[in-house]
Write a protein that binds this DNA or RNA. Structure first.
Lengths: 213, 213, 213, 213
DNA sequence: AATGAATGAGGCTTCATTCAT
DNA sequence: CATGAATGAAGCCTCATTCAT
């Protein structure tokens, strides 16, 4: 496998990846998630990631990924896949928009308690993107799409009379920022009760969004 | 001037800095703030900062500052000095705790409109600290002290019946995170209306904190 | 190969080094010995060593060795290995303590004639250690151990009536110093007859140590 | 005063130095001796020397001395002046060549006890010379002249029947090396009794040189 | 697939020196 | 005389990447 054929491109081309190939890639991505969560995006060097993956050479990472950006894309994609698998059922278990918002907030922090590194990795990678970064643009757009979906949901909630009047974009960014902040705090404060903080945040944003009679 | 005598130490020793010395240091700090805001903490190399400051070599930065940490300390100190000078009068112009909270939020984003790089630099530096970073610990503690003061204010507001019942730490961190998020967005979206977003955020957290009868 | 796993550590871990790995390391060490002997410990920069080893960048040295100290450790270890292999049989070929002392002195200078750089490198590295140098402490202790062994031999010689009464430590340090001095002289005086000087020194210290009836 | 007119050149030109000029130069030389003795020749940077001399800028050293080599020349000249003033009367107080040799050895180590840094500085500077060093050649020649004088004395002692037959050059270099070794040891071992070691060394070389009946 | 080796760029620091004031 | 500032070189180190095997 040539590195320049990144995983996504290959799938688009319809060629199946071998088991080992998939395995190694996944292993590297998993190690990258851990390392990024531990030392941050910039300090997560190929050397550290290879070491954690049990590889004796950073060359293998360059072999499997078409550069650092490609690896980081996979890191976020994998972490988001896990997050989505965890959150979607919990959110869709509720009917009302307000309950779903609460489930989303609390779910994120329950997820943090269960997978301490995934949300941190997402935050690190996305937080270190710069406007001009080529190759990562599609990424920002992906996140934007998710946010746009949530905005749509909130708008429906407002239309349904569940939420008061506010700018959904500002609200949802504030929620995301508050969650990410807890994720960062959890990194340095092992004793932090993420779930309790999640409930507190859910209460906070419930007051900020609900329609007062 | 010996670099290892950082500005604060020198002042503590009572020795006055020469005009030029102060000037170059300030110029380097100002350049650092700009570079950090533009490319981020990790990518803000001495080379880029020196170039922006009109210096021909990175050696001059090592000459004026006792290493990267020392420079970053000055960066945050300077940015916080500016922010404090801007925000304090605006906040203290109000009597009620709720009004002061609103003034704080809106003030931060007005400040962002006026000094687009200072808050970004603070966020970048503090956001890239890791638990074990020696030499920067005093910094985290400094921020914690500011937050603790605000927590105390909020508690008084709760006691005074202006605010409803919530965990002040969680609330204030959420506010800080929301503001920092706007700061980051402003970096990549030149068209963003920071002041309007400030008012929206102030409304949001007003609903989240105010006592409902 | 990870540089931070120095050769000794790796061997302790039981992992075999590849042929090339050993080769390059050995080549770098050999080049370092030459450069150190030529320009001295402090002026033996990675750049010079890399150049002599046919490497295009100093990065390779950092890749193979965990810093300057690690390289210097290997330099001394290798030079001492060679010296030991050369001297031990020559010394142990003799029975009496006096003859062994003579063999040791003459052997050192014969070794100098054969390997002009090894003793010089040892002297340069050890001579540039300072008390507080961390990481090199084990080294000084290693040399001290060798000296302590020789002291013990001399004491036995005294007990056996071969040597007169003197402080073995002072004597052995004087011998070592005299040998090292010749090593340094040989560096700048190509015409020096090391072996003849060795015999002269052996005579000198024979008179200084032998029991007079 | 222009640095390029070094002290010696100026005296040769017959121009008197001002008091301050002489004072500063002497102060810098004295500081250099201390710093060199403490951290070694190579690590004795202008910065450290200036700091110890109470100067706030290394520029003053470049102003007073025509480069590092010039300073080092003065360091050795000054240290040798002190050593000569101390040793000469002690040596000349004796008549026999053997007694003078003993006085020389013991005197050097008494000197070490009294001026712990001067002999160390001499040894550091001279020990770091390399053959090709331009500008320092005159220096080695100076030392060689001293040694040549001592050699002459020893030859006379041999002719007078006080000493046995040996190569005076080898003997005197061995003595010098042994003394310098004690000087280096004294640097790292504060408890060392230099005078006692001096007596032991004097005994050693007395046995090595005296005529046995 | 995997490894170890190599590269070249870039990072921060220290140094001796020069210069305007 | 003295200072602080500036320079340019050199030093060691880390990094992502490439390549032969």
């Amino acid at each position: 496998m040539r590195a320049r054929n990144s995983a996504s491109k290959q799938q688009a081309e319809g060629r199946a990846r071998s088991f080992t190939e998939t395995g190694r890639r996944a292993q590297i991505v998993a190690s990258a998630i851990d390392v990024i969560a531990e030392v941050g995006y910039q300090r997560a060097s190929f050397a550290k990631i290879a070491q954690r993956a049990g590889l004796s050479s950073t060359g293998m990472i360059s072999y499997h990924f078409d550069g650092r950006d490609d690896l980081m894309r996979e890191v976020v994609a994998e972490a988001m896949r896990v997050a989505d698998g965890y959150l979607r059922p919990r959110i869709e278990a509720h009917e009302s928009y307000a309950a779903r918002l609460r489930a989303s907030i609390e779910g994120n922090l329950d997820l943090l308690a269960e997978y301490p590194n995934h949300l941190a990795a997402i935050g690190e990678v996305l937080g270190n993107l710069r406007g001009g970064d080529p190759g990562m643009v599609a990424f920002t757009e992906g996140m934007e799409a998710i946010l746009a979906f949530q905005v749509e949901q909130v708008r429906k909630g407002q239309a349904a009379g569940e939420f008061c009047d506010f700018d959904p974009w500002v609200m949802l960014r504030a929620i995301r920022a508050a969650i990410d902040d807890v994720v960062r705090r959890a990194r340095d404060e092992p004793g932090l009760d993420a779930c309790a903080t999640g409930r507190e945040l859910a209460d906070l944003f419930d007051r900020a969004t609900r329609k007062t009679p």
